[in-house]
Write a protein that binds this DNA or RNA. Structure first.
Lengths: 233, 233
DNA sequence: TCAATAGTGTCTGTTAGACATTATGGA
DNA sequence: TCCATAATGTCTAACAGACACTATTGA
């Protein structure tokens, strides 16, 4: 190693700026919405940005992301996962060289009322964002869709008991595409993820739906073959 | 937002330390090996660590990861992707609060000879590492296996032309499990990822194998259903 | 000739998607 | 009664995994 002149990183990069940015999502009716706040620029034009703040001295990344999320939302999100670090030189509102992005999910209704400087936007109608944050948003949505079948993300957006139609609706919202009802339920049944309760919910007309709860059972990992997905095209 | 006392991240977090760490992998026979270098501690005991260095002033993350990889390897890896940022308070050799980990793949033979302070270790026989880096290694291998069917990672470990048995061997190395020959080739054929060349390679005894090259064709995205993988168990 | 590796054909069990049907409430 | 939604049954095409078999080289 030729490049290690200093023995301490803390000494070598005093001036490195590090920001923690949070992409907060919540369902709003049939749409997925994202929390943005007004930029505090001298500019008269209305500008929006992802909630962010500088990492504080001695603070861990999870602690910082929770702090930023709580400050913007007024409460804690149901799930907070890191997306990635971003530092390709794109402009960040805080002038940060490197920003670590987090994805937060908020159950429907919980955080829909936020303070004056923040507001929820449908994800397909976002205003212009600082270049560095625009990249984070895209990465967050991509990561969300990639992780949805690897971790119980969808259940974080629902109340403890829910109907299967509600669950499917959340999956469709997060994936951004429609799912087949019978296939969805068959896969759900095979995965032993939920169990029925004794309750039924009647909403408007139509047959009442049975309520389920999230109750994952141990399951042998079924790893079927190589898929080669997304490699071409 | 209550927490934004300062308008500039650069001003607020002068003392934040940021390291860039690189997990470099190369096949070594039938095993996957990782590049580690000797720690420069005052300790007499032999200690090993992932190649890392502090992010320099104004340097982008991709540039820093390339620099660290080149310094350790003597040449550039065939692929260098970010894993994630790590800053949960675990001990890092440079005392960094936050470290961004990268995964680098090196074709077989290219980087097998490295300088005096670095050495390749089979991934299931790694020496003890600093806690922060041990977490990175596990995350790198997990990410590798998750991404292998989403990006052409495996082809980066092979020469431009290769036999299908070699390709399958790389997949088995990266996934850490055996694959079924006929199924592997069927899936490969269906994905239109490779095309045969006119050349054949004879190695030792046995029927010579036809050489292929990586040549992805456009393909309609086949997204089949919801899998619910990894959600339980 | 045998051993070793490459490459292919066929069968079977699983499952996603389509479609149809029944069930059960409200208007 | 009609309509909307829930829930389930059946059929089919796709496909993974297993197995067997042929092909082609070196020893």
């Amino acid at each position: 190693m030729r490049d290690r002149a200093s023995t301490s990183v803390a000494r070598a990069v005093r001036r490195t700026a590090l920001s923690v940015d949070v992409v907060l999502l919540t369902p709003h009716g049939r749409r997925l919405t994202m929390l943005l706040r007004r930029s505090s620029t001298a500019d008269t034009r209305e500008r929006w940005e992802l909630p962010w703040d500088a990492l504080r001295d001695g603070e861990t990344l999870p602690a910082a992301s929770t702090r930023v999320a709580r400050a913007a939302l007024g409460t804690s999100p149901a799930l907070l996962e890191q997306i990635a670090a971003f530092g390709e030189g794109r402009r960040h509102p805080g002038g940060a060289t490197v920003a670590v992005a987090f994805l937060g999910l908020v159950p429907a209704g919980v955080g829909t009322v936020v303070g004056g400087t923040a507001s929820w936007f449908p994800i397909d109608e976002l205003p212009a964002l600082p270049p560095a944050q625009r990249v984070m948003v895209d990465a967050a949505l991509t990561a969300l869709r990639a992780r949805i079948d690897q971790s119980p993300i969808a259940f974080r957006l629902l109340s403890p008991t829910f109907t299967l139609s509600q669950l499917q609706e959340v999956y469709e919202l997060l994936l951004g595409r429609r799912l087949h009802k019978a296939s969805f339920r068959r896969a759900l049944h095979a995965a032993w993820l939920v169990e029925p309760t004794d309750e039924w919910r009647s909403e408007g007309r139509g047959r009442p739906a049975q309520l389920y709860r999230y109750a994952p059972r141990k399951r042998r990992a079924r790893r079927r073959g190589v898929r080669f997905e997304g490699l071409a095209g």
